[in-house]
């Protein structure tokens, strides 16, 4: 980034370029992890939080073993049904 400190004009171009890159990368990450299914992103985080809380605060190992895959499948099924309802409207 040495060329960015030469002149004001160069700084403006480089600064704009960096901002554009950061914005573009942020948009790419958002599309990558959230995209058109924010419910799946929320579900992924929720699965981790709930499973972790149940294991560490209640020591409910058997419950987590049963609940973790159930939550995952239930979430995907819910998202499929949601899309089905959207399309049938």
């Amino acid at each position: 980034m040495g060329s960015c400190v030469v002149t004001d004009a160069a700084r403006a171009v480089c600064g704009g370029g960096v901002m554009k890159f950061v914005r573009g990368f942020g948009k790419f990450l958002f599309e990558f992890f959230v995209g058109d299914t924010p419910e799946l992103f929320v579900l992924g985080v929720a699965v981790l939080t709930i499973a972790s809380a149940l294991l560490h605060y209640l020591n409910a190992r058997a419950l987590v073993i049963a609940l973790l895959p159930l939550m995952v499948f239930g979430g995907v099924l819910g998202s499929v049904l949601l899309e089905r309802r959207r399309k049938s409207r």
Partner: peptide
Amino acid sequence: TVLLIFGMQWWRKAIL
């Protein structure tokens, strides 16, 4: 978590 979110997106699309 990354694999779960990423995989669920693929899984859902394939079902649809």
